[in-house]
Computed example of a mutant assay.
Amino acid sequence: MTAGKLCISATLLSLLLVSLTTKADLVVLQYHHISDATPPSTSTSVSLFKAQLDVISDLGLEVVDLHEATENLFSHSPSMNQSIALTFDDAYESVYSVAADILQKRTLPYTIFVDTKAVGNQGYMTWDQLQALAERDGVSFANHGAGHGHMARKPSEPKADWKQRTTQSLDSAQAELQKKLGTGLPLFAYPYGEFDETLEAKVAERGWFGFGQQSGAIGPLSGKTRLPRFPMANAYGQLNGLKDKLTSRAFPVDANALPDGIMASNPPTLTLPLVEKIKPARLTCFASGMGRIDFEVLGDKISVKAPRPFNSRRFRYNCTHPAENGSFYWLSQQWLDLSQPED
């Protein structure tokens, strides 16, 4: 082989290695209302929504179909392109009256997770409106349960009762979506983002992907029944941190080895394996309402624990670490205190 061919081969090998180490992930954005007049905690203003879409476009990121992209990510030959998927929980009317036209003009696909019992109630879409959206290109519908109940098993709830009510919610919603909209996508969004291992098992038994409300990107090591999404309501979707979220990478640990988030002690301890890509000196962790928190390196583990107890039903530990090309590995561990009252 000539020196010139050796040089070309070395260059190609170098490019291949770079592509393998910089493989991109899927970032899923979670919305509820797109409105200036609905509850602030679950609303994204119209101007902010448009600005968020502008940032996605300016970064050259492709907006993709959620189901196809998730299937692709866990395939033997996943796409190498960083991509974005848009999701809307509950099927609020503002998605039909405001967001749908904005997205249609930009030819962007999106998925609506439908609470089938809420359809037709005040503030929600009707079945006619959902059927009208179903006729548009790029619009898909998926399961958000029937009634938006808290689905993790309650501390004093008999197992048989829990099994009956969760099975009813999951399966009746899926049947209704099939009947009314002709869709049976294997996608489920947990109400309130709450889940436990037994609920995850139900989702897995059905061959579905399960999506939460904890932040982060989705990669091959993400748990198929605990997939993260970035909340995009006004409080969380401001533009000053949006680029880091859109270009984030999945944290390089096996998500299935992490806890389901049901809290055994308060404050809880999150234990992470110390993997090659994570350098403790570059790791930063935060806790809901407490800002940055400390962690300990104990042998081949990282132990993350808030300095004081929490008094809310749901809260999170978020950890980030620099990745390639100015992006960040991003991990969000949601915790659920079942002793606290339901919403």
Score class of each variant (00 low, 15 high):
99 A>N: 03
226 R>D: 06
299 G>C: 14
238 Q>I: 09
342 E>H: 05
70 T>E: 03
84 I>Q: 00
109 P>R: 04
102 I>D: 01
14 S>N: 12
238 Q>G: 11
147 G>S: 08
79 S>I: 14
193 G>A: 07
29 L>I: 12
222 S>D: 10
212 G>C: 10
29 L>C: 09
122 Q>M: 04
191 P>D: 03
250 A>W: 03
163 K>Q: 14
208 W>I: 14
59 L>G: 02
321 H>F: 06
6 L>Y: 03
106 R>F: 09
153 R>E: 13
163 K>R: 11
150 H>Q: 11
176 E>G: 01
100 A>K: 00
127 W>P: 04
213 Q>S: 14
272 L>A: 07
114 V>Q: 00
219 G>C: 05
262 I>E: 13
237 G>E: 06
187 L>D: 06
228 P>W: 09
255 A>C: 07
98 V>E: 08
113 F>V: 13
38 T>Q: 01
29 L>F: 09
237 G>V: 15
95 V>E: 00
122 Q>S: 06
334 Q>A: 08
294 D>N: 14
285 C>K: 08
159 K>M: 08
159 K>Q: 12
75 S>K: 10
125 M>H: 10
48 L>M: 13
234 N>C: 06
46 V>K: 02
149 G>Q: 07
284 T>A: 14
217 A>W: 14
115 D>A: 14
117 K>G: 00
99 A>M: 04
20 L>D: 07
53 L>E: 02
264 A>M: 10
202 K>F: 03
216 G>W: 09
139 V>W: 00
133 L>Q: 00
46 V>W: 00
218 I>H: 03
166 T>Y: 07
299 G>L: 13
36 D>I: 10
149 G>T: 10
217 A>D: 14
297 V>T: 15
320 T>P: 02
262 I>S: 10
340 Q>R: 15
242 L>W: 05
247 T>V: 11
97 S>T: 15
186 P>I: 15
119 V>C: 00
68 E>Y: 09
315 F>R: 13
168 Q>V: 06
233 A>Y: 02
221 L>F: 10
207 G>F: 06
238 Q>Y: 05
269 T>R: 13
205 E>L: 14
283 L>P: 01
281 A>N: 11
293 I>S: 13
192 Y>D: 03
196 D>A: 10
307 P>D: 07
57 S>R: 15
289 G>W: 12
